[in-house]
């Protein structure tokens, strides 16, 4: 799992590559917490190169979403593959986190 960080229109874009599972979810959590600065008010996770996520990764997403909500920061996900989208839908996470089809659409929605 690797995270690369970019910024566009005041949106912090963290692109996650590889797999998030029970073995590396903690590493994912630490990497995200390290990437998101205190001043970031708009955060987007780009999953276009994420191949796999399970409940261990969902837990981290939930914790980050709560943290950002407390700060009144915007949070969104984009570019989920079909099986990953299914995981989010079964878990009901699609109802509490905004999910966009593409990075451009997400930045357009939450950026300025």
């Amino acid at each position: 799992m690797e995270i690369s960080v970019d910024r566009a229109n005041e949106v912090l874009i963290a692109k996650v590559e590889g797999r998030i599972d029970g073995a590396n979810a903690r590493e994912f959590e630490d990497a995200l917490n390290g990437a998101i600065g205190e001043d970031d008010s708009k955060v987007l996770l780009d999953f276009s190169t994420l191949s796999y996520i399970s409940s261990a990764g969902l837990r981290v997403i939930l914790l980050i979403a709560r943290l950002l909500q407390k700060r009144n920061a915007a949070f969104a996900l984009c570019s989920l593959s079909d099986p990953i989208r299914e995981v989010f839908e079964i878990s009901g996470f699609d109802k509490i986190i905004s999910i966009h089809d593409s990075q451009a659409e997400a930045v357009d929605k939450i950026g300025r």
Partner: peptide, 20 residues
């Protein structure tokens, strides 16, 4: 059984794996 309809704050962190 996790509550998959509750809001962000009330959402339990565990139980999702077995539910999946």
């Amino acid at each position: 059984e996790p509550d998959v309809d509750s809001g962000l704050d009330d959402r339990p962190v565990g139980g999702l794996g077995i539910y999946l």
